[in-house]
Design a protein around this nucleic acid. Structure first.
Length: 271
DNA sequence: AAAAGCCCCTGGATGC
DNA sequence: TGCATCCAGGGGCTTT
């Protein structure tokens, strides 16, 4: 479910309210993608300093240690004072003095990992190879192009891989390439400077706009308050296989790239 | 080093 | 209504 905008909207919806809270107890449901790594009992008594984001990971800073959260494909967080009884897909509760942070994740591709800090070997394994943050000032067209020039793989797959730029998931990858007029199969290294600049612009615009609107609600995204996003991502190509391109009426094509579906318009996206 | 496949898991939609 | 099949927003790991 969550690409960068959804993760960021989730963060914004509870970061201020959980900051300063003391952890009272932890409840674990079914196993998630990885074990917690640390002792859940040891979390009790620690304090939450704040919540940051790196790519699609949320980093919950503690006065001692760091909690890494990932929502996987189907995860969502809620933060509430009086939570309901845990449901069958509620697999992690962090009970604090200021509310309960709960991870609901039917498919359990998500994760909660307790590490000592960002330099921790386990944390490095997960965060160490992440690319540039698309909403940060450090993400500029020149550095972006430098990253792409090393890669012969199709641009769509390079975007998804997240080692050049993070946060662009399967939906936004198709959308962003459509806006930039770039064919998803084009080798990343073959993109000219002006086309990389256009792609850079599209990534910045689309992601920033989605965060501002509260995340897309393509299916059922909701933030940690349980509010649905206000932004019906009105997709130009994603999920529109066989339908007419909104610009030129050519049928949108759906192809398979690395076990994921890509959508594009063969006329608007030449190479 | 980079690229291509595999796999983790559940649920909803579709087709017979 | 029941059952099989396919597909889904991610990404680490193993193999080429």
């Amino acid at each position: 479910m969550p690409e960068l905008p959804e993760v960021e909207v989730t963060r914004l919806s509870f970061a201020d309210r959980i900051a300063g809270a003391q952890i009272l107890a932890v409840r674990l449901g079914k196993p998630l993608r990885w074990p917690l790594h640390g002792d859940p009992e040891a979390l009790t008594g620690r304090c939450v300093l704040g919540v940051r984001r790196r790519g699609k990971y949320l980093l919950v800073d503690l006065d001692q240690g760091l909690l890494l959260l990932h929502l996987g494909m189907s995860g969502s967080l809620s933060f509430s004072l009086h939570p309901t009884e845990p449901g069958k897909h509620d697999h992690f509760d962090l009970r604090t003095s200021q509310g309960v942070l709960r991870l609901n994740d039917p498919r359990r591709f998500g994760a909660v990992v307790l590490v000592s800090g960002e330099e921790d070997a386990v944390a490095q394994k997960l965060l160490g190879k992440l690319g540039m943050e698309p909403l940060d000032a450090g993400f500029d067209p020149l550095r972006f192009r430098q990253g792409l020039l090393q890669r012969k793989a199709p641009i769509k797959q390079v975007l998804l891989a997240g080692d050049v730029v993070v946060g662009v998931g399967n939906i936004y990858a198709s959308e962003v390439l459509f806006l930039a007029g770039i064919r998803p199969t084009t080798p990343a290294m073959r993109l000219s400077r002006p086309r990389v600049k256009k792609l850079h612009q599209a990534i910045c615009d689309v992601l920033a706009r989605a965060v501002k609107r509260g995340g897309s609600t393509l299916q059922n995204f909701s933030n940690a308050d349980g509010e649905a996003g206000h932004f019906q991502l009105d997709a130009m190509v994603y999920g529109r296989g066989g339908m007419e391109c909104k610009v030129c009426a050519t049928p949108i094509r759906a192809i398979r790239q690395g076990q994921r579906t890509t959508f594009f318009c063969a006329k608007c996206q030449k190479t």
